[in-house]
Each structure stands twice: as structure tokens, then as C-alpha cells.
Amino acid sequence: MQDPLPPLLRVQDLHKEFSSGGGWLGGAPRVVRAVDRVSFEVRAGETLGVVGESGCGKTTLGRMVLRLLEATSGKVEFDGTDLGGLDAARMRAMRRNMQIIFQDPFGALNPRMTVGELIVEPLVIHGVGTPASRQARLDELLGLVGLAPYHAARFAHEFSGGQRQRICIARALALNPRFIVCDEAASALDVSIQAQILNLLQDLKQSLGLTYLFISHDLGVIRHISDRVMVMYLGQVVEMGSKHQIFDAPSHPYTAALLRASPSRNRGKTRFAAIKGDLPSPANPPPGCRFHTRCPLAQPVCRTTPPPLMPVGASGQSAACHFPGSDRGPLDPGKTVGAMGG
């Protein structure tokens, strides 16, 4: 293999606080740190999977990366350009390279526009091409996502969920982006349709050389689609590594527990092994390590000192744990307790 390419996307200390309630009626507002100083890189042609429980900050992160949501602090660089330094016009031009596909194919599509109008709308907005060239591009896009030319004259509500997601994908591809955030892009679909959409996204990645930030709560989908994986818990990255490191040799107790909790069709009739305790409120996360209230390996230091994200071994895996395992194994959280850290 050749030397790895420079990262297409570089995210540094990205941070988002939402305040809710409070004000003149109720005293101090509650601050939710939805995304808490998150850093990562995505190389061109790579798929980085982002996984974690509901409310851990996946969507907030994805939207900040595209500057659809302003960060409280931190930096996003795309292809060497700091997005924070761009004015509105240049950001708009930059956005042609960066698109997003959402979970809900209903909400995303204007019911009064035909499918053809919906798909070429980004071209119209960005003033790309002539009516004739847009028509040619429309035919090309319909073919790419597996729709037929006659579909262009119909309205989105006439389509099934899977077909609607194809329309959203065609729309996202219209401007020839290099990078796409897929936020639960196949999660709302039935399994047989989910497989069609996942295959389509993989084919498009190959043929168009796309780079994905792929957000999902489904561990099977994340393993299938990702090259590398980032695991989030309460706004923070707790572990990052190649998909084989994360799924076959997880180092962080949360990753191991998540894998163990996921029902398997290969183990036969078994007892479920749940993580004990409720997910704490993101508005009031535990001090020290945020996972300590549910961690089977927690020690006194975990209650007071937040563990930084540190390399585990020499191979690009990192974990935020005072006692990272070299291989926690998905089946046994207590199998190994690594050297003391911190």
C-alpha cells in the first residue's frame, strides 16, 4: 500500500453547549455539553463510523462538521481549509463538497416538488449548469441510485421509505460532493430495504471515491460499513480504532459492554448481559470518568479524574480509560485489566 493520504477532514476540540430552561423565570439555565472537545481525522476514501447511545451527541457532531450548526468552540478543517474562517459566500461554495443524508426521508423532502425538481434543486440553488445539462445530470443521478427516469415526474409521497431514501441520496450527490455525513441513513428502514441502501452507499463510495462520516446506533451496520470506528458516550469520544480493533479487541469497558449488550444471532439461547444502571442525564454528567456510574471496573480514581483519550498499544487504537485493556473481548468485561494509567 502507498503512504496514507493526508486527512480530508480534521476536527479539533470541537465543542457544543446547549442551554435550556432558566432565564428570568427559573434561575441559572441548564447547560448540556452535547459534544465535549471531540477531535478526529477522516482520510480521503475512508468511512469513519460513529456509534453510541441515544443523546450521546452523534447528530450534533455531524451537523457541526458541516457547519449546519455553529460550534461553541473548536476547529473543522476540510481539505486543509479552516471552515471557521470562511465567510458566508465561501462557505456556500465549500458546501458543494460536503453533504448530509438524514434518517427521516419524509421530513427531508418538500411534498410540493416533483422528484426531478427535488434532485436538481441543489444545482439550481448553486447556479450550476443549464436546464439541458441539469436534465442530463438528473437522468444520470436517477440511474446511480437505482430509480427509473419516469420516477422524476412523481411526488415523493408516492414512494416507499427505501425509494425516498434513494431520492435523498440522489439529491445529496447532485453537486458531486467528496464527503457525506450519513446520519442514521438506513436506520428507519426494514431490514431487506436497509440492505439495499447500505449496498448502494457502498457502491457509490467505490465508484465516486466518496468519504463518509457514518453515524448509526446499530453495531452491525457500523461494523459492516466502517473502516475505522469512534465510540461516543455522553458527548465524549471514549474509544477510537480500526473496526477490527473496536469489535474484536475493544479496549474501553464501555465499548466491551455495548458489544456484549447487543443481541447476537450466533450465540444461541443465552442470558442477556445488560450494562447496569441508567444512562446519566447529559445535562448533569458524572464527574471524573463519565462512565464510572455503570463501569464494572471503576476504581476510586475514576470518580474524580477524567481519563484523557490515550493511545493503546502502537497501532492507532486509543481509549479514554484509566485502566484500558489490551483486549477486553466483547464477551468478558473483566478478562484483562491493563497497567495502571493516569
Partner: peptide, 13 residues
């Protein structure tokens, strides 16, 4: 057609 979190699948049916 269902991706597994335990084994690699190159391509889903």
C-alpha cells in the same frame, strides 16, 4: 441481509 457485529461481511445480500 442483516449485518453482524461479530463477523465481517463484504457485501450484504
Amino acid at each position: 441481509s442483516i449485518p453482524s457485529s461479530e463477523v465481517d461481511t463484504d457485501r450484504l445480500y
